[in-house]
Design a protein around this nucleic acid. Sequence first.
DNA 1: GAACAGCACTACAAAATACA
DNA 2: TGTATTTTGTAGTGCTGTTC
Length: 293
Amino acid sequence: MPPLTSVRAFEAVARQLSFTRAAAELGMSQAAVSYQIKLLEERIGAALFVRKARQVELSEVGQRLAPDVLQAFDILRNSFVQTHQHVSGTLAILSLPTFATRWFAANIGLFQVAHPDIAVRFNSRVENVDFQKDMFDVGIIASWGELPEGVVGHELLRAEFTPIMSGDFIERHRIREPRDLLRAPAISPSDQWIGQWFAMMGIDDYPAMARGVVTLDTQVLEAAAAGAGRGFAMITPALFRDDLASGRLVQPFPELGWDGCTYQLVYPQSRRNWTKVKVFREWILEATSVLRA
DNA sequence: GAACAGCACTACAAAATACA
DNA sequence: TGTATTTTGTAGTGCTGTTC
């Protein structure tokens, strides 16, 4: 086979019947196309084009070669277009449930409006995404700083926490200061954030208290239970702004705890230049800037 | 469109270095 | 000590810009 660059130049000139137009299409100079055709003609041992004043025509040899070459490039072109549409057309995202339900569900529509050419396949689960095993393009994870090798992360939101409850719960248990929570039921009482928050407030006797056995593994479930007046839960208030604004949930104390955990957008380093990943990264960093403010 | 000079890039081999 | 990886130097290739 002759060099593919030469064959590609021949295909473009045969289609355009112009060295100049072929060069513009290929992103090369006219001189380079001329050089590639000359190489091909030397290799074949015959002229492929008849040069005329201000125009070129396929020679007899060129006419014999052109149909097969054009058809072959057509097949290649279609194949690449279809592959590109398949690869770039669908963005697969795996998110933690809390972020998925509290932020994504409300905002992913805006991404679809801004980028109608990219379909989104969205899943949520409690465990972080594992790019070695999972078939997802990007993930939303909780991270304490360490990321797997070869994975890039962008901070979306600090997972700060504070006790959240219903207004009715506050009145029933007469919650006026942090210490009052010690005699009130907690949702997921073994949640380490509870002990950390109390310690931050100068209350060290929480871990000694044995209360309740129910543990809910997502903030969404804990917030639902708290909203129903079943107890107080340690929640990231930025993710429950609407519930707090409507009064369904109440944050009685302004102090926020933080153990270094952040919600992060992650993806393998090797995918950083994929169009759909780039577009999504730019969109979500902009869209979540309010949460970080 | 063709020809030519000059430049940039690439491929390859050899040498140097790191590591088990 | 053998193998893998990285660095360096060089020759060849292909491109651009210019001129005809």
